[in-house]
Design a protein around this nucleic acid. Structure first.
Lengths: 241, 241
DNA sequence: CACGGATTTTGACATATATCAAACCGGTTA
DNA sequence: TAACCGGTTTGATATATGTCAAAATCCGTG
């Protein structure tokens, strides 16, 4: 069944970037996504706000995003919720449950989206059959941990504008990886969601956007963004203190 | 050789606590540590400031702390360094390298300490021989990832005093687990190191200590701490916003 | 096209933490 | 004992972000 797609070639998205992608998105090119979808025989549609899966829910499948985008979030006892990642076309989500067999976060559609259910409902089973895949997942996870160390420093020590710069550069990179424009795109998430993701209030996010605009680094109008000076954004991030 | 110690019973320290222990300390009781040391035939001594291992260094062994304590830290390109964890008697460090075969942080002695080299220089080899151990490590890692999600919310949203409260309660718990007093102990790390760990400046840490003292929650004099009202500290943490 | 609700922007102000500086220990050495 | 040194505490002030509120803008719907 699943012969024609080499899952062992899965690459984790942006492993060299400092943003957190705790739900382990995985890069696939358009062709691979198409292949997966052909295999899956199960493409599902979700409307804005629909849950792809919920925290605590039993692990069913991995999902490749065919169109649209999702956010992942954790809900805390006290009701607060935090966005832990954004997933876009061509990325795979659901890996957060590979070990515990339970999802550790909610996945919610940011817009009308389609996902392909990957043709195995138990990755663990598959991974036992494919030692190389298991080793790969192992690696992915350990890389995640390592990466998180960086993130924590960032969250602890970066200022609002630096965080937003990292965020925008990350998005840019991911759009580029899908053959989309890396300098001009539509945000699919609100200021509130960006803020939750970056550990900031929505007003702070908005102000940071405005500041970038004033500095000539970007053009921003509501959710449409144009990056004018990638180098300038990079410089912001590099600038310690 | 390593028959008498059941490594598959390793439990990750404080998996229910919100503090980050990225270098994966593992709980062992005094007896188990002794057993490990008997097996290892290799007990090493380190003075304050000595490196147990360095980031990037090839994975050699796991180490069980027989006496003393260590901190783990990451060094960043720009020279900044951040403490990522503290390890005390009875905990195992070195697991950060199990997958990549390279250490991801420095481990430095906080005081004169002794560690036992665990009797296998390649955990991966062992883990291949022991599927149950491999699965367990798998689980530990995935739990780490889950836990980190919580941490990131905390770092993003907790205030200085809450962070310090979490820190103190975590220490208390770990002392208790070793049969030491959970309410009265000596800190082995400086305000600066605590600050780095919690994402705060040393002065802020110091002030938080003083505030706790003024509120009657603790007695603190330099590095000796007495927790007077555990419930009060817990309340602080629970108190959102 | 106009309306209404949601989102975004902007402003004024409050608050928490960082920064800078000085004083204060506690232990070590001369 | 005195001088010293690292670490700690405390104070005054600066700065970044949060908070609250209002205005402006966007977007879907009738």
């Amino acid at each position: 069944m699943q012969r024609s797609v080499s899952l062992t070639r899965l690459k984790i998205a942006c492993s060299d970037c400092n943003l957190r992608e705790l739900c382990l998105p995985v890069d696939l090119n358009a062709q691979e996504i198409q292949q997966l979808c052909d295999l899956s025989h199960a493409k599902h549609a979700y409307s804005r706000g629909d849950y792809l899966y919920r925290s605590g829910g039993k692990f069913g499948s991995l999902y490749a995003i065919y169109s649209g985008s999702f956010k992942t979030q954790v809900l805390h006892e006290d009701g607060r919720e935090q966005v832990t990642g954004f997933q876009m076309v061509g990325e795979i989500i659901g890996l957060d449950a590979i070990c515990t067999d339970r999802h550790t976060c909610d996945a919610v559609a940011l817009e009308n989206s389609e996902v392909c259910e990957l043709p195995f409902n138990k990755l663990e089973v598959l991974s036992r059959k494919l030692p190389s895949l298991q080793r790969h997942l192992h690696k992915i996870m350990s890389r995640e941990i390592v990466r998180d160390q960086g993130i924590m420093l960032l969250l602890g020590s970066m200022r609002a504008e630096e965080r937003l710069a990292v965020f925008l550069l990350n998005l840019s990179q991911r759009f580029a990886a899908r053959g989309l424009s890396p300098t001009q795109f539509q945000l699919r998430m609100s200021r509130q969601e960006i803020g939750s993701y970056l550990g900031l209030k929505l007003e702070t996010v908005s102000r940071a956007f405005s500041n970038f605009q004033d500095s000539g680094l970007i053009n921003v109008k509501a959710r449409s963004v144009e990056l004018l000076e990638l180098s300038g954004l990079h410089a912001l991030v590099g600038k310690q203190q």
